[in-house]
Design a protein around this nucleic acid. Structure first.
Length: 547
DNA sequence: GTAGGGTTAG
């Protein structure tokens, strides 16, 4: 195609390497057309590969590709790779079909790895196996890249026997093929085999070390993970992230923090591991503090970090901070429409008391799922807006969403906070009969709270008596609080003595019982209870009662 | 004659 043309394309290729925006690609495309290179496969292939670095540019790459009169295999592969990385399996498959239907685009060893990777990402066993058959027809199954991607595919789909078979038949294996096999075993929960592969590997790189450590972390074997972590010949930030994540998962944030400090090259993902660890372990103040430290170190947060920070803020219920974060999110170029971002924003605003903002965000969500509905309902519950909560709950049902046990916990909480007894009963029945959800101790606690708060103490007591004793101490505590609220001394005595049996080491029930006696001027009983308490070695812990 | 592909982390 390029016979006799002046050597003008290399400068365009140089330009392409530094190009990353649509505007920039458009300008170069104009140049290509202007110089008459639009059918130069070599140049266009470079152009398309450069263009296929983001989803937004993929459409443009496709347009440019379509203007080429006669695309060769390499050009098809560039386009296909872009679709596999930034689009869906189905759109990649239509490119693949078009390629096979064309006269020049014969699939080769470069065609299949991206396609198989796409099948692994979508865990599409059916398509993946079909493609495996096809690639044998094209005679590329001996290629090490093709083989590795197949091992990875079967491993990710938990078809470990097939992964082993492909791995065993590979004529050449390299460190990537071995690592794919290792990851496959980890995926199937077989750490022993994974370790066997790790020990047998002729060569290891950082990725293989991290994959093995990640395996231990995923399956909760933190000691083995740490032992291997200390043996890594050269750690990188990924190794630290994996290990910190492991500590966070088992709640050991002190060790996580220690490793975090030790890692010198902190990147965004490392900060994220620390911050989300704090947020998920109920340490919201530390999460927010670390977030501020991160900003201080000139690291710009991304949406993953912001979701963690918003969850932390929701936990502390700090309205001022919530407003700050909210306006920061709007000012910066975050996409507030993305499901998990929007859900976190709604949840934070609802929990911190800005219900108006929460409502408007909620109604502007492109798709409201069960979680976002529950955040909103929970927000109403926290602010005693039971009627709104119930309205929203029925809205959710009419949208066809299937409530789960958490949704019912939330709506029952809303009913109890607003003393909506009949509605609560009705929903409790609906949960059991219509949705076949067996009430958990939590659900019972909500019902006891609902009945107790609204003064139906006997009904609450009867319901509680009908349950097995185990797992319901929280409900007994709830009822005790209600008895105290309604000054029912007789029932308090009964419930508190029951609770003393259930949790003989909990000072709270003793304290409550003695308080009730005190309020009724029964000072002799007060001193008996206090003596019992001291006799058991219990002291009153400040702020530990239920009322 | 050139170009295009596979593994770890939130």
């Amino acid at each position: 195609m390029r016979h006799g043309l002046p050597a003008i394309s290399p400068p365009i290729i140089t330009l392409l390497k530094s190009c990353n925006t649509l505007r920039c690609f458009e300008q170069i495309h104009v140049q290509i057309i202007h110089k008459g290179f639009e059918h130069d496969n070599y140049l266009i292939s470079n152009f398309i590969s450069g263009c296929c670095t983001s989803f937004s540019l993929l459409r443009y790459a496709t347009t440019v590709f379509n203007s080429v009169s006669c695309a060769n295999t390499c050009l098809w592969n560039s386009l296909l790779n872009g679709h596999c990385n930034y689009s869906s399996l189905s759109s990649s498959l239509s490119v693949f079909s078009a390629m096979r239907a064309s006269s020049e685009g014969v699939p080769d060893k470069y065609t299949f790895p991206p396609l198989i990777k796409c099948c692994s990402n979508e865990l599409d066993v059916f398509v993946g196996v079909g493609i495996h058959g096809l690639l044998i027809k094209y005679g590329v199954e001996d290629n090490v890249f093709v083989g590795s991607s197949l091992v990875d595919f079967y491993g990710k789909c938990k078809l470990i026997g097939d992964a082993q078979k492909v791995f065993g038949e590979m004529p050449d294996r390299n460190v990537v093929s071995w690592t794919c096999m290792l990851v496959g075993y980890v995926n199937c929960g077989d750490l022993v085999s994974a370790r066997r592969v790790f020990d047998a590997m002729p060569k290891r790189n950082r990725v293989s070390w991290n994959a093995m450590i990640c395996g231990y972390v995923k399956l909760g074997e933190l000691n083995s993970a740490r032992k291997l972590f200390d043996e890594i010949p050269s750690k990188n930030v990924h190794s630290y992230t994996t290990m910190i994540d492991g500590y966070a998962k088992c709640g050991d944030m002190a060790s996580a923090r220690f490793l975090f400090e030790e890692c010198l090259a902190k990147d965004l993902v490392l900060w994220s591991a620390l911050i989300s660890g704090y947020a998920q372990n109920g340490l919201p103040k530390e999460a927010v503090k670390s977030f501020q430290e991160m900003q201080f170190s000139n690291t710009r947060p991304d949406e993953h970090i912001m979701v963690s920070v918003m969850s932390a803020c929701a936990q502390v219920g700090n309205l001022e901070l919530a407003n700050e974060i909210d306006s920061y999110m709007s000012r910066s170029s975050f996409d507030l429409q993305r499901t998990h971002v929007a859900a976190a924003l709604v949840d934070m605003n609802a929990k911190c008391g800005n219900m108006e903002r929460a409502m408007s965000l909620f109604h502007n969500m492109p798709k409201r799922d069960l979680v976002s509905y529950c955040s909103m309902i929970h927000g109403h519950a926290l602010h005693g807006q039971g009627t709104e909560a119930i309205k929203l709950f029925y809205n959710m049902l009419s949208e066809g969403l299937m409530p789960d046990d958490v949704a019912f916990t939330v709506i029952l909480t809303a009913c109890s906070h607003a003393a909506l007894v009949e509605e609560g009963y009705c929903l409790f029945d609906m949960m059991k009969s219509k949705y076949s959800i067996t009430p958990s101790p939590n659900h019972y606690a909500c019902m006891i709270d609902l009945l107790g708060r609204s003064g139906h103490l006997e009904a609450a007591y009867d319901l509680l008596k009908s349950l097995s004793v185990e797992n319901h101490s929280e409900s007994w505590g709830t009822l005790l609080g209600a008895c105290r609220l309604h000054c029912d001394t007789d029932l308090t005595e009964v419930v508190a003595s029951r609770l003393v049996e259930l949790e003989p080491c909990n000072a709270g029930s003793f304290v409550l019982l003695s308080n009730v006696y005190a309020a009724a001027d029964r000072w002799l009983d007060v001193s008996i209870v206090r003596k019992q308490m001291i006799g058991r070695g219990l002291r009153k812990i400040p702020g530990c009662s239920w009322v």
